[in-house]
Design a protein around this nucleic acid. Structure first.
Lengths: 218, 218
DNA sequence: TAGATTGTTAATCGATTAACAATC
DNA sequence: TAGATTGTTAATCGATTAACAATC
C-alpha cells in the first residue's frame, strides 16, 4: 500500500513550500537567491536546502546562488505542474464543495471534470458550471473520460467503496478527505487530508505542558 | 516560532490515528488488543506502538496487551479531549463554511462561538445557527468571550492580520487554512492545513517515476 | 583574481526497529 | 505454571547538519 517514493517523503513534503516561497520571490522581482538567504526566509537550514535541491539536479551556481525564476520553474516541473490533470470530486457536501470552488487548483493545472453525490437534493445543482451528477453514473463517467486524480469527499463509511471504483477504472491517484485509511493496490497513490487529525494534533500541543505537569505531580 | 513539543512531532502526529483505530475497535466490541495485532491493522510496527505509548505511561499489561477502552480513554486525555474548546472561524468562504458545518468537531469538544467575514454579502447570513459577523467586530468579540482556538480561513493576504489580532487577544492556538506561514510568538501554536501543498505532493508522486526516467535518458 | 556560494562528503543527531528480561 | 506480551535498552537506519573542496 502506498508506493514508496524514490525521494524520501520528508524531502517531497518540502517541495511545495520551496515552490511557494520562490513564487513569492518571483512576484517581488527577486532575481537570485542564495541557500543562506532562502534559509532565513523559509526556515530550513541552508545545508538542507542544498541537499534537497541536489536530489533533482544542479540548479545553482557557485558564488552566485540560484536564479529564482529558473529554480521556480524547475521545481514546478519536478512537482509535475508542467502537466494537466483531470479530476473528479465524489461527495458534494461541505468539503467537496469547498474543494470544487477552490479555483486556485485550476490555475495549477488541475481541471475539475465532474462532481458526484448520491443525495437527490444535490444532484442537478451546479457548482462552478458543473452539474452534480448521481454517483451511480460515476463508473460510466470514468470509463468515457480520462481522469487522473479522484477526490473523495464522502463520509468515511462510503469512502472505500468509492476508492474501489476509482481503482477499478484505472485511476492512479486519490486525494482522500474522508477520515479513514483506504486500501488500494501498490501502484495507486493516496494522499490523505485528515482534518480532525490535524485538529487533535493542535489540541494535544495546546495541552502538552499541563499533561506533563500532572505526570510529575503524581 | 512554533513551540517545540516535549514529545517529538513524529509521535504526536500518530496519536490521532491511534485514537481513531481504538475508537473503531471499541465500536466493534473488541476488549483487548496486543501491540502486534494493532500493528497489523494500523500499519505501524508493534515496537513503535509500544515505544509511542510508553512516552505517556504504562498502559499495557504483560501477557495481556492493552485494554481497548482504557487505552482509548487515555489517548483521548493525552489529546486533550477531556476538555472543551471555544473556537472562532474567520473567513466564511468555502473552507470556512465547510469547517463550520463539520459537526464532528463539536462532538470532540470543539465548540464554535462565532464566524466572521468582511464580505457584506455574507455578514448576517447564518451557518449552523451562527450569524456571520463583521470581522471589524472580531477584536471586541475576543475580548468579551474566551476563545481557545482561532481558525483562519481567509485569503493569504489577510491571514497575518487576523493572526495578529488573535495573538493580541491572547489566543494560544491557531488552525490555519490560509496558504501562507504565519508569524506568531513562541508561545502560540500554529497548525497548518495547506491543501495545495497536499495536492502538489500528490502530483509529485504521480510523476516521480517518469521524472527519473527522463533524468536517466538525458 | 578574490569572494561567495555551491555540490557533496563526512559527522551528528534523532527516529525506528530489534531484542529480551520482566511480569502478568 | 507456561505462554504471551509488555516495557525498555541497545542496535540500526535514515535524515539533518556541518564542513570544505570545487568553481563561478
Amino acid at each position: 500500500m502506498g508506493k514508496k517514493t524514490m525521494i524520501s517523503m520528508a524531502v517531497v513534503r518540502r517541495l511545495p513550500k520551496y515552490y511557494r516561497y520562490l513564487g513569492e520571490l518571483l512576484r517581488n522581482d527577486v532575481e537570485r537567491i542564495s541557500s543562506k538567504e532562502l534559509s532565513e526566509r523559509i526556515g530550513f537550514t541552508a545545508s538542507q536546502i542544498r541537499q534537497d535541491l541536489n536530489n533533482f539536479g544542479d540548479f545553482g551556481q557557485q558564488g552566485y546562488g540560484y536564479n529564482v525564476r529558473a529554480l521556480y520553474e524547475e521545481i514546478g516541473k519536478i512537482l509535475g505542474l508542467n502537466k494537466h490533470y483531470n479530476t473528479v470530486i465524489v461527495g458534494a457536501g461541505n468539503i467537496g464543495q469547498a474543494v470544487a470552488n477552490y479555483t486556485n487548483f485550476e490555475r495549477l493545472g488541475f481541471h475539475l471534470l465532474g462532481i458526484f453525490d448520491r443525495n437527490p437534493k444535490l444532484i442537478g445543482i451546479s457548482i462552478r458550471d458543473k452539474v452534480i451528477q448521481d454517483v451511480d453514473n460515476l463508473e460510466e463517467f470514468l470509463r468515457s473520460n480520462h481522469v487522473d486524480i479522484g477526490i473523495i469527499c464522502v463520509p468515511k463509511e462510503q469512502a472505500q467503496k468509492i476508492a474501489d471504483i476509482f481503482v477499478k477504472c484505472g485511476i492512479k491517484a486519490i486525494w482522500n478527505f474522508a477520515p479513514t485509511d483506504l486500501n488500494v493496490p501498490d501502484d495507486v497513490i493516496v494522499e490523505n487530508v485528515h482534518l480532525s487529525e490535524s485538529l487533535l494534533t493542535l489540541s494535544y500541543r495546546l495541552n502538552e505542558a499541563e499533561l506533563f505537569k500532572e505526570k510529575i505531580g503524581r
